[in-house]
Lab assay of single mutants.
Amino acid sequence: SFQYVPVQLQGGAPWGFTLKGGLEHCEPLTVSKIEDGGKAALSQKMRTGDELVNINGTPLYGSRQEALILIKGSFRILKLIVRRRN
Rank of each mutant, 00 (worst) to 15 (best):
S1M: 08
S1W: 04
F2L: 05
F2D: 09
F2I: 07
F2H: 10
Q3S: 11
Q3K: 07
Q3M: 10
Q3I: 13
Q3V: 11
Y4A: 06
Y4M: 09
Y4I: 08
Y4T: 08
Y4F: 08
Y4D: 11
Y4W: 04
V5K: 01
V5W: 05
V5H: 06
P6M: 14
P6W: 10
V7F: 14
V7I: 14
V7G: 00
V7S: 00
V7L: 10
V7C: 09
V7D: 08
Q8M: 14
Q8G: 04
Q8K: 13
Q8V: 13
L9Q: 11
L9H: 10
L9M: 10
L9V: 01
L9K: 04
L9C: 11
Q10H: 12
Q10V: 14
Q10R: 12
Q10P: 04
G11W: 05
G11S: 03
G11I: 05
G12Q: 07
G12I: 02
G12L: 04
A13N: 08
A13Y: 11
A13S: 10
P14G: 00
P14R: 05
P14L: 03
P14A: 08
P14E: 02
W15L: 00
G16H: 01
G16S: 02
G16V: 02
G16Q: 08
G16D: 06
G16N: 05
F17Y: 00
F17M: 00
F17P: 04
F17A: 04
F17G: 00
F17W: 07
T18G: 10
T18A: 12
L19A: 04
L19M: 07
L19H: 02
L19W: 01
K20I: 08
K20S: 14
K20D: 11
K20E: 14
G21S: 00
G21E: 04
G21Q: 00
G22L: 04
G22N: 03
G22D: 01
L23Y: 09
L23P: 05
L23C: 14
L23N: 14
L23M: 14
E24M: 06
E24S: 08
E24P: 10
E24H: 11
H25I: 13
H25G: 13
H25V: 13
H25T: 13
H25M: 14
H25C: 15
C26V: 05
C26I: 07
C26G: 15
C26N: 15
E27G: 08
E27Q: 11
E27S: 10
P28C: 03
P28S: 09
P28W: 01
P28A: 09
L29I: 09
L29P: 03
L29H: 04
L29V: 08
L29R: 02
T30S: 08
T30M: 11
T30V: 12
T30N: 11
T30H: 11
T30F: 03
T30A: 08
V31S: 01
V31F: 03
S32W: 09
S32V: 10
S32D: 15
S32C: 15
S32K: 09
K33F: 14
K33D: 15
K33E: 14
I34G: 03
I34R: 02
E35H: 10
E35A: 12
E35R: 09
E35I: 14
E35V: 12
E35P: 08
E35W: 10
D36N: 09
D36Q: 12
D36L: 10
G37Q: 08
G37Y: 10
G37F: 06
G37W: 07
G37K: 10
G38V: 04
G38E: 04
G38T: 05
K39Y: 07
A40F: 03
A40G: 01
A40R: 02
A40L: 04
A40Q: 07
A41L: 06
A41H: 13
A41N: 07
L42K: 12
L42W: 08
L42Q: 10
L42G: 10
L42D: 13
S43C: 07
S43D: 10
Q44S: 12
Q44W: 05
Q44Y: 09
K45I: 11
K45E: 10
M46A: 03
M46C: 01
R47H: 10
R47D: 05
T48Y: 11
T48G: 07
T48W: 09
G49F: 01
G49S: 01
D50H: 05
D50A: 01
E51L: 02
E51Q: 09
E51K: 07
L52T: 02
L52S: 01
L52H: 01
L52M: 00
L52C: 06
L52A: 05
N54E: 13
N54I: 15
I55A: 02
N56T: 01
N56Q: 07
G57I: 00
G57C: 10
G57H: 00
T58N: 10
T58V: 13
T58M: 13
T58H: 12
T58R: 12
T58S: 08
P59G: 07
P59H: 12
P59Q: 14
P59C: 09
P59D: 15
L60T: 12
Y61K: 15
Y61N: 15
Y61Q: 15
Y61V: 15
Y61A: 15
G62D: 08
G62V: 04
G62L: 02
G62Q: 04
G62H: 07
S63F: 09
S63C: 09
S63A: 08
R64S: 08
R64V: 10
R64W: 09
R64G: 07
R64H: 13
R64I: 12
Q65V: 08
Q65L: 08
E66I: 08
E66C: 09
E66P: 01
A67V: 01
A67T: 02
A67Y: 02
A67N: 03
A67W: 05
A67F: 05
L68E: 15
L68N: 13
L68K: 13
L68C: 11
L68M: 14
I69Q: 15
I69A: 15
L70V: 06
L70A: 13
L70G: 05
L70K: 11
L70C: 08
I71G: 01
I71C: 06
I71E: 02
K72F: 06
K72C: 07
K72N: 13
K72Q: 13
K72R: 13
K72L: 07
K72V: 04
G73K: 15
G73N: 15
G73W: 04
G73S: 12
G73Y: 12
S74G: 08
S74K: 06
S74E: 10
S74H: 06
F75N: 15
F75C: 13
R76M: 08
R76Q: 14
R76G: 10
R76C: 08
R76H: 13
I77W: 09
I77Y: 11
I77K: 14
I77V: 14
L78I: 08
L78G: 02
L78T: 04
K79W: 05
K79S: 12
K79Y: 07
K79P: 00
K79H: 14
L80G: 02
L80A: 04
L80K: 02
L80Q: 06
I81E: 07
I81G: 05
I81T: 13
I81N: 01
I81K: 07
V82Y: 00
V82N: 05
R83Y: 00
R84W: 04
R84S: 02
R85T: 10
R85I: 08
R85L: 07
R85G: 08
N86R: 15
N86Y: 08
N86V: 14
